[in-house]
Design a protein around this nucleic acid. Sequence first.
DNA 1: CGGTTGGTTGAAACCTATCAACGGTTGTGG
DNA 2: CCACAACCGTTGATAGGTTTCAACCAACCG
Lengths: 243, 243
Amino acid sequence: MLTTALRATPSATSSKSFVRRLEACGGVAAAEIAILEAALHAPETYRAGELLHPPRPGAPPFFMVSGWACLARLLDDGRRQVLAFLLPGDGVGFDLLTQSRESTSVLALTPVKVQRVRQSLLGEITGCPGVNRALAVASDQQQTRLIDQVVRLGRQTAYERCAHLLLELHGRLAEIGETQGDAFRLPVKQEVLADALGLSLVHVNRTLQQLRRDQLVEVHGGAAILKDRQALAATCEYRSGST
Amino acid sequence: MLTTALRATPSATSSKSFVRRLEACGGVAAAEIAILEAALHAPETYRAGELLHPPRPGAPPFFMVSGWACLARLLDDGRRQVLAFLLPGDGVGFDLLTQSRESTSVLALTPVKVQRVRQSLLGEITGCPGVNRALAVASDQQQTRLIDQVVRLGRQTAYERCAHLLLELHGRLAEIGETQGDAFRLPVKQEVLADALGLSLVHVNRTLQQLRRDQLVEVHGGAAILKDRQALAATCEYRSGST
DNA sequence: CGGTTGGTTGAAACCTATCAACGGTTGTGG
DNA sequence: CCACAACCGTTGATAGGTTTCAACCAACCG
């Protein structure tokens, strides 16, 4: 069955997902990778539902090792807006977007493993030209996705928003080898999707069903399959990497 | 009458609005200001409705001298999403958000005057530690406003969105001395507000009227007055500068 | 087994968009 | 000076998309 097939997804290529991500963002010398790895603390783990940013305001940046998290803002009356999804390999706290802000929090959506940068060696990292450039590219992608998010919320229908987000997640997961063709694990509740898409839980549910009825996607049991990526992309004007 | 009173707003303090902005973003030495000014081309002007970014992909960054512009993305079917407003004093092209992107354009909303940075002297500028830091602060504010935009579009009602945006604009204009107490010029069509707020033109009109009926704001003839800033801020959970 | 969680469904109310028309203002040319 | 067109704001009626409330179901777990 689909769910079982996708349950365990051992990282294929490199041992560390963030290494793969950085390499995808531009040539990083092997020597630099070594420096980087030496500058990291041992992995920390968080449970789903835990907040992992605000604890310490001046907390050092870290890399997502495994699991899903999100950047979110909470409103006083309980409303919540997910600003961005944080996937394995993503750096958090390196760029402006993910830097600690009082009104913004990082929330673990699944069990999450991260590796923080040693405060004392932060300079070492930003000193590496290759790593530095890779981080800048990653930051640029992050920024591009935030713009996409604005467009989705402001000017796209529920149907388009869902399609667009699913394509974005597929694209990002593909980069770190966490897809099987058109299928990927989607370990988030529909409630979280709703808070990312600016919709109600119920409406996300119905919209996903509509996409399924149209033979475009299949979302079930924590996994998604994009049955017709091209048609999906046409529906929502999706541009991979977003030009 | 209100409109006439606000028509001409001679910049009060410094001659250059971007100098004021940068100084507001952190102490910049007088010597650095001189270097900066020397690195700028003569002012260029654009008419309302003109696109001033995409013309040249590798175009140098510039400062807004006067007038309003916006960063927008156009969808294939004509839908448009305004990502950010660009006001006098704002730097465009210095940070990731405003850097040239294929899918994103900079549109003059009023007659606009800008000063580009001389390509050859770009290094001089980014070499100044003070200027550099000030630009970083400005970039951070820009980013914060983009996050606010996501929250507005995703999780606020039309009423709240309007209130929030008006407060943001008032705050930014106040920083550059373009407010008269609670009043300020708002030289944009409701259609533009609609594209920024993710609403229809008609609904923006009605929502502004509702705000007026509630004695919170007055929007007329290209000008706005915030009659009760505190109540407005409470309505939409506005945080100045956004913590 | 009962309780909990997350997904699904239905009906109704609400918000917002769309369509269409009107009015005021401005600028222009006869 | 007036007629006219163009533009922008305004208003009403209607349709449609979304939310809310409520209930039900299935899977999972102690």
